[in-house]
Amino acid sequence: METVLAILSGVLSACAVWLMLSGNLLRFLFGLLLLSNAVNLAIFAAGRLTEGAPPLLGQGGALPGHQMANSLPQALLLTAIVIGFGLFAFALALTIRAYRAFGHLEVDRMRLAEPEEGGK
């Protein structure tokens, strides 16, 4: 199962890089979203998986009979997803604002803060 997740994470990263290399801000954002999901999956897999059972102790702290996943990476993930969600929402709002300010989302043409000619 971990192998599948590792491959999936790799495929997601590849797609993310492809999207992020395009000159469009919105596609870049989608790429970033894919990349953060790829990273999340990688961390998830790094904590080992137990199929079909949550990584919780039984009644009275009894250990289950099978190997257990480490639940800390899942907690870290949850934090990371929440933070990532906030950042992504902000980036999306910024994109909308950029679209209103410039009328396009081509990053190559966003040169207001750095004019093409040196200086003036």
Binding site: M20, L25, F28, L29, L32, L35, S36, V39, A42, I43, A46, P73, L76, L77, A80, L87, F90, A91, L94, T95, R97, A98, A101, F102, V107, M110, R111, L112, A113
Partner: peptide, 24 residues
């Protein structure tokens, strides 16, 4: 807004890398 777009996007990439490194 123009400056923020560049600041935000590149810093988000660094964040993702940091998270990945911490997780690994």
């Amino acid at each position: 807004v123009d400056g923020a777009v560049k600041y935000v996007t590149l810093n988000l990439i660094s964040t993702v890398l940091f998270l990945c490194a911490a997780g690994l």
